[in-house]
Computed example of a mutant assay.
Amino acid sequence: MGMQYDSNEIAGILPHRYPFALVDKIVDGEPGQWAKGVKCVTVNEPFFQGHFPGKHVMPGVLLIEAMAQVGGVAILALPENRGKLAFLGRVKDARFKRQVVPGDVVEMECRLTRRRGPIGVGECTATVNGEIVVTAEITFAISSAEA
């Protein structure tokens, strides 16, 4: 097993806080290379108030954001990137295959495939019970927190 972080440790790497902290734990990975994270979806998520009343479905854009946060942990866990921010630059080829509902445990993996200076690309996949929920290529830019 590689990287493992609980929610408190993730908060030391990522700036996201409630209601936008979308990764409950990191279960494996290698800094600068890849990370695997988990989101346990509950009916108490604030977005279910409006998405949708009577038919709770996790918004696809939040699934993309959750995958990006897993990738953010992978890149920001490098010692030279601690305290920096990873901004979402582009989402390419997002494919949604299944809805995510309360009770689902979403497992997300982001593999960093290219990096040139502060710009990088991650190949991301989210699954529930081994079934693909969404795949996407995510481009990010690393910046100092002061910028």
Rank of each mutant, 00 (worst) to 15 (best):
A136M: 01
F52D: 11
I26P: 01
V134A: 09
A68Q: 03
A126R: 03
E109M: 09
Y18E: 04
A68H: 09
G120C: 08
G130K: 06
Q99S: 15
F96Q: 06
L22Y: 03
C124F: 00
G2Y: 10
D104H: 14
D28F: 08
E45R: 08
L63G: 04
V27L: 07
T42N: 02
R95H: 06
F47K: 02
R115K: 12
N44W: 07
G29P: 07
A86T: 10
T127P: 07
A21V: 13
G83H: 04
H56G: 09
P46R: 11
G29Q: 05
T127Y: 00
G29N: 10
R95G: 02
L88C: 11
L62S: 08
G60V: 02
Y18P: 00
L85K: 12
E45A: 04
G89V: 05
V27I: 15
E45P: 01
P31D: 09
K97Y: 05
P19F: 06
V133W: 05
K92E: 14
A66M: 12
K97I: 00
E30R: 11
P46A: 12
V73F: 07
L63P: 08
C110P: 00
V106Y: 03
A11F: 14
E109A: 06
R115P: 00
I132Y: 10
V38K: 07
I119P: 00
V73A: 04
R95I: 11
A21Y: 05
D24G: 05
E80W: 09
L112G: 01
A11S: 15
P46I: 13
T125Y: 00
V23M: 09
D104I: 07
L112I: 14
V38G: 04
F20P: 05
C124S: 09
R116T: 11
A147G: 02
G32Q: 05
G120I: 02
P102V: 08
A147R: 05
A35V: 05
N44A: 10
G54K: 13
K55E: 15
C124K: 01
Q33P: 02
I75P: 03
D93K: 13
V38M: 02
F96C: 09
V23S: 10
G37C: 10
A126H: 03
P15Q: 11
P19G: 11
Q69M: 09
N44L: 03
Q99I: 13
S7Y: 13
P118Y: 02
Y5G: 06
H16D: 12
F140N: 00
A86G: 11
V106T: 05
M3I: 14
K97H: 11
N44G: 01
A86Y: 07
I119E: 10
N44R: 05
A86F: 12
P59M: 08
G54Q: 14
Q33S: 15
V101E: 14
T135N: 01
L62N: 13
A136G: 00
A66S: 14
I26A: 06
W34V: 08
L85W: 12
P53S: 11
L62V: 07
G122A: 09
V91K: 05
P46E: 14
L112T: 03
N8C: 12
